[in-house]
Simulated assay, not measured.
Amino acid sequence: MQKKRGRRVLKVVLWGLLAVVVLGVGGILVWSQVGVMPAEPEPLAEVRADAAIHIEDAPQGIVMTPADGDSDRGLVFVPGAKVDPWAYASILQGLVDDGTTVVITRPWLNLAFFDLRGLDQFTSAAPDIDDWAVGGHSLGGVRACRLAADAEALVLFGSYCADDLSTSGLAVLSISGSEDGLSTPAKVNAARHLLPADAEMVEIDGASHASFGDYGPQAGDGTPAISRTDMHARVDELLQGFFAELPTR
């Protein structure tokens, strides 16, 4: 009698645990799809209208290449949490115009934290390119730091590393914003020791967290004091200068 009662209790406990797991997984799936910040249509339309850029919606992500096919370097860029990958096409447009192939990833569940794919899963979109940098915005930047061991360079937009890359020898460009309410200047500075000593650290005056993409205001962020045009021009200047100094194979 006691054995039967014990088995019933065990079944109840096991079914209860299964229900908790199912509800937890279901909750994460629902949460990851709710509140995704879409790309603003006007900046994206400008990119699509750029005859110098070829855009492919590929399995590896959004692949932007110079239309003339003259590209010998690449950047894999990881979006911030719950941000439409297309929201970064415009701010990276100038880099492509200058000859760099850009692959903007689509993180699993819209969260880079859950995306465990290696860098080669994205660089396969342009197999002829040997020299790759990796970068990302916000949580995407944290993920990019994890992928940096397989890249030649690292680019951070309003982000910082959780991994120690201080002795990696990587070329690093970290761009932050003075008005960023999420990856605040204090947080960026607190993680500075995790980057190489010669990492290029640039704080853009007036830039907020959402200034690094075209997806509108973001909860918890500061108020930007820089226009989209000026922000894109400044980021483009920094990126082109950084990539121009990278050695090629």
Rank of each mutant, 00 (worst) to 15 (best):
D115C: 11
R117T: 02
G118A: 13
G118K: 10
L119R: 09
L119V: 05
D120I: 05
Q121H: 13
Q121N: 15
F122W: 14
F122R: 13
F122E: 04
T123S: 12
T123H: 13
S124Y: 08
S124I: 03
A125E: 06
A126Y: 04
P127G: 04
I129T: 10
I129Q: 13
D130R: 13
D130M: 02
W132L: 00
W132I: 00
A133S: 15
G135V: 02
G135A: 07
S138Q: 12
S138F: 01
L139A: 12
L139C: 04
L139M: 15
G141V: 02
G141N: 01
R143G: 04
L147Q: 05
L147T: 10
A148C: 06
A148W: 07
A151C: 00
A151V: 00
A153M: 04
V155E: 01
L156A: 07
Y160Q: 08
Y160D: 08
C161L: 00
A162V: 06
L165E: 11
S166R: 13
L170S: 03
A171S: 15
V172M: 01
L173K: 07
S176V: 10
S176T: 14
S176C: 09
G177P: 02
G177S: 03
S178R: 03
E179W: 09
E179I: 03
D180C: 07
L182N: 04
L182Q: 04
L182A: 05
S183T: 14
S183N: 11
T184M: 05
T184E: 02
P185N: 07
P185E: 05
P185D: 03
V188W: 00
V188G: 01
N189T: 06
N189F: 00
A191Q: 09
R192P: 01
P196A: 01
D198R: 11
D198L: 03
E200Y: 07
M201N: 09
E203Y: 02
D205W: 06
G206P: 14
G206S: 09
S208P: 12
H209K: 09
H209P: 14
A210W: 03
A210F: 08
A210P: 12
F212H: 10
F212V: 07
G213P: 00
D214M: 04
D214F: 06
P217N: 06
Q218W: 07
Q218S: 07
A219G: 11
G220A: 07
G222S: 10
T223K: 12
P224K: 08
P224T: 07
I226H: 15
I226M: 06
S227E: 05
R228N: 08
M231Y: 02
A233S: 12
V235S: 01
D236R: 11
